[in-house]
Design a binder for these strands. Structure first.
Lengths: 372, 372
DNA sequence: TTTTGTTCGTAAGGTCTACTAACAAACATG
DNA sequence: CATGTTTGTTAGTAGACCTTACGAACAAAA
């Protein structure tokens, strides 16, 4: 007998309804305000069904009528509807900073309208309490109903929002999702910070459907989207490339005990230390090029295996943009078959320092509205 | 305005119906014959709905009643139903061999009940005609209605079954799917041979939901399944790792012009040549260990990034099993963070030489019945 | 042997979903 | 002003699954 497959689940008509509801939201989210008739044409659903769905969404306060569109041709002028982009807010938090927890209130479009931050405490308990405190302060500043809370946390996070392991915070098996849900009575979504970041790049950054985001900070992590779907991995550890050994010729000593880890080459502390040691500008550039080459060596097999079309870097511009990124793309092209991958782009994110916060917002949009 | 997302499609109630129909087939496929009431408990659908779906499937000749189960407890004895495993056959073809096209008729369980093969011609036109001829011979030997035709082809194959590029066959932009559909009037599914192979391993080989299959033959290719989903890549070239450069210390010359490609280390011709050159048994073993180490170096970043739990090797046992596989797993463990990946298993496939044929059958099961 | 309780499969009726058909309202154009 | 177009709604229909109810067939206890 063949193996037991993934436990699939039944689908009821109401699930189809929920899907189509999300389809309407998704269409408005991406294409902007339009009439019911436009939505009908765009989605393939009939005007009747669209009217029904839109009425339901207006009742839920997620969609609003904006007014009559000025007639440009024959026919009855259309009533334009749109996501009520001001009607709901999203609470995002980024716990991946070296010494501070960042938080923000965002619009449905991912724009930040309020910020708070709090020092990251040392102990596991204190860190947990600080997250709750930060969330409470943000809730007080929302000035609109909050759709949900998204959290980008360092470490490995499972599908239920349990932080399985985050050494930097001293967390092991911390059920962050239920902790925050209990404390704030709002829907909560938790993911690894780099995995959140790639969602921001995918939804707000114009990335394609097959993209890898490399996040360089105190450590090095990554998030992967393939065919438009985020990857999570067998142990929820997809993207953990910081301690992959790069090359076969040694390398710097890593804090983990091994030699030549990507993180030992590429982390911000490692890079700044080498920048400080370098004596000339040419020296510094060579150091950056070396680091970029190492990144390319590590990424080449991933690019080949996943057939990724786009690699996005997130981290300090002064280190990553320029020679480092150039060396990365050159190395990848040299080390993969050019036939298919000559189109691999390597670029900096345009999301800046708020990428994790915006990614956390995408998690909420996706989890609560089915929008991404 | 955010980017335009994947074009999602509406869902109608009839799609839910089709899903639940597949759910019944999937349950029977994996768990074997059972009663309608068992199906109801297993799927969560009511007995009424299950009866309706089963009646439809019996009408289509996909499911059959096997007889009354002997009563073991109180209550009315159950009528056992099952996939009509003998009622339909699958036609599979493997075009990846060095000099022959292989074909087989398979049961729904992936067992081969008839075989044919044909020399692989040189020219692109002749190769195309040979595939059609092979399929015709197999159809004549099917002795049951054929559910569909699955083809594992070398090269890059898009979602529409067009072989974009298969240098070994001289094919460029060959619409193999429509060619075969026109010639044989049967549903056809085409995929890369290694991508087909990983499906066989996933469905029949007991692999987990996150698995990489490395297929070593004239070249080196791979197929990836992540979270139970096959990966295709931005240009339908996922798994193409043969010409990824391995290591930073040179290596053998590759036919592609570069130095140190995985294929130059690991392909069957390369390995057999080095075996022949080696003078002692210890020498030969070292050669195999070196090749295995190179495979490990190439796979380590992939294992880290995808958080794969299982790596399966397909190819000649006498080369791959033993020192090579051992060196591969040791290298991966050395070069990735042990915390999460110490569970990475590396093993030979148990599917043998028929892995692509069986994978082609899985493609048909999945495409025609929604079963995998 | 009779009674009781269980399990199986089916029948009838209800709810939900999206569809088709038809229509009034509101506009541009000849 | 008549005509045609477009919008959004109303009314009715078909499909899918649900709940409820029931007869059939059995085991175990009285």
């Amino acid at each position: 007998m063949p193996r037991r497959g993934l436990r699939r689940v039944k689908v009821l008509p109401e699930h189809a309804r929920a899907h189509n509801r999300s389809l309407v939201l998704q269409t408005l989210f991406h294409d902007g305000a339009m009439s019911r008739a436009d939505l009908s044409r765009e989605t393939g659903l009939t005007r009747v069904t669209i009217s029904d769905l839109v009425a339901e969404l207006i009742g839920d306060g997620l969609v609003a009528e904006l007014g009559i569109r000025e007639a440009s041709g024959p026919g009855k002028p259309a009533m334009v509807v749109d996501l009520d982009r001001a009607g709901r807010r999203i609470l995002g938090m980024d716990l991946s900073g070296p010494d501070r927890f960042l938080g923000a209130i965002l619009t449905l479009d991912g724009d930040i309208v309020a910020r708070h931050e709090i020092p990251a405490p040392r102990g596991a308990e204190d860190a947990r309490d600080a997250v709750i405190e930060l969330a409470r302060r943000l809730v007080a500043d929302a000035h609109a109903p909050i759709l949900g809370i998204g959290v980008g946390s360092p470490g490995v996070v499972d599908n239920d929002g349990v932080v399985l392991s985050a050494p930097g915070l001293g967390w092991t098996q911390v059920p962050l999702r239920s902790i925050l849900e209990d404390a704030l009575a709002l829907p909560v979504l938790v993911a690894n910070d780099a995995n959140a970041a790639v969602l921001a790049e995918y939804t707000f950054g114009g990335a394609g459907d097959d993209v890898v985001l490399v996040k360089v900070g105190r450590g090095v992590g990554s998030g992967l989207v393939s065919a438009g779907q985020p990857m999570r991995g067998a142990h929820f550890a997809a993207g953990e490339i910081g301690h992959v050994t790069v090359g076969t010729d040694g390398g710097p000593q890593c804090a983990c005990g091994k030699v030549g880890c990507l993180e030992a080459w590429l982390s911000v502390p490692a890079l700044t230390a080498r920048m400080a040691d370098a004596e000339t500008a040419a020296d510094r550039e060579q150091q950056l090029r070396d680091a970029g080459e190492r990144l390319g060596i590590a990424l080449a097999p991933i690019v080949g295996a996943l057939d990724v079309s786009e690699i996005v870097l997130s981290g300090p511009d002064e280190l990553l943009a320029g020679p480092l990124a150039e060396a990365t793309v050159e190395t990848i092209r040299t080390r993969t078959l050019a036939r298919f991958h000559d189109g691999v782009r390597v670029r900096m994110t345009a999301q800046g320092q708020d990428i994790v916060l915006r990614g956390a917002a995408v998690m909420v949009l996706s989890g609560q509205l089915g929008v991404s």
